[in-house]
C-alpha cells in the first residue's frame, strides 16, 4: 500500500515483526489527513504496534501532531503502540515543546524502536 500527495508519500513494510511505516515529506495541515487515513487503515487491519520511520519527514506541525495523537489513542485499547524513530532535531524539538515525548515513544533506530515496542507499559 502506498499513498501520495504533493506534501507526503507513505509506504510500509513488515520488519522485525512490526509494521514499519515510512512517510516522506512534511506532516502538516495538507498531508495530515492522508497520513492519518493510512495509519487508520493499518490499525483496522490489526497490524499491531506501528513503527514510524521519521527519517524523511522534514517537519511536523500541530496538525501532524493531532494525527499522531489520534492514532496513538486508537492503538492504546489493544495495548499496541506508536513508536517513532530516526526523528530529526527539529521534529524532536516540536515533540518536546508540545509535551508529546511524554505520551509517544521515540527511538533512535529501528532496532531500538522494536525493543521499545516489545516492552510493556
Amino acid at each position: 500500500m502506498t499513498a501520495d500527495t504533493s506534501e507526503i508519500t507513505i509506504e510500509h513494510r513488515t520488519e522485525e515483526g512490526f509494521a514499519v511505516v515510512s512517510p516522506a515529506g512534511k506532516l502538516d495541515t495538507l498531508s495530515a489527513r492522508t497520513f492519518e487515513a493510512y495509519l487508520k487503515s493499518l490499525v483496522e487491519q490489526k497490524s499491531g504496534t506501528l513503527l514510524i520511520d521519521m527519517e524523511k519527514v522534514d517537519y511536523v506541525t500541530s496538525f501532524g501532531l493531532r494525527s499522531l495523537l489520534i492514532i496513538a489513542k486508537l492503538l492504546a485499547p489493544s495495548g499496541d503502540k506508536l513508536v517513532l524513530f530516526q526523528v530529526n532535531p527539529s521534529v524532536y524539538e516540536v515533540l518536546k515543546i508540545s509535551g508529546f515525548l511524554k505520551i509517544l515513544k521515540v527511538a533512535d533506530t529501528l532496532a531500538e524502536a522494536g525493543e521499545m515496542a516489545g516492552r510493556t507499559g
Binding site: L65, L69, K73, G99, K102, I103
Partner: peptide, 9 residues
C-alpha cells in the same frame, strides 16, 4: 500530562 487520554491539542 503523561496520559494519552488526557492529551489535547
Amino acid at each position: 500530562v503523561d496520559d494519552l487520554d488526557a492529551m489535547g491539542i
